[in-house]
């Protein structure tokens, strides 16, 4: 049972890390144009907002799908 819990939490950790890889990939393309000596303020804000807005978009889509389903039934 302890092992089960451990494996489950490792599983969650893996999904978390996979999401971070996916978001870095996506937001890198959206926010980083040229390679400079440091990520500047504008790029950093863009990266943070990119993650936040992507998650907002997910929530918005799921919510809207649920409403559509409710109206249908």
């Amino acid at each position: 049972k302890e092992l089960g819990k451990f494996l489950e939490s490792e599983n969650a950790r893996m999904r978390l890390q996979q999401s971070i890889h996916t978001f870095t990939d996506l937001c890198w393309d959206k926010c980083i144009n040229k390679i400079s000596n440091k990520i500047d303020r504008g790029e950093e804000t863009c990266l943070t907002n990119c993650v936040e807005r992507f998650l907002d978009t997910s929530l918005f889509i799921v919510k809207r799908l649920e409403e559509t389903r409710k109206n249908l039934s």
Binding site: H21, W28, C31, S36, N37, L47, V51, L55
Partner: peptide
């Protein structure tokens, strides 16, 4: 340089997501 920037970006994204 690109590698350093990518790892920086990875850290920023991690913090934002967590």
């Amino acid at each position: 340089k690109c590698m350093d920037r990518y790892m920086e970006a990875w850290n920023i994204v991690s913090r934002a997501y967590i």
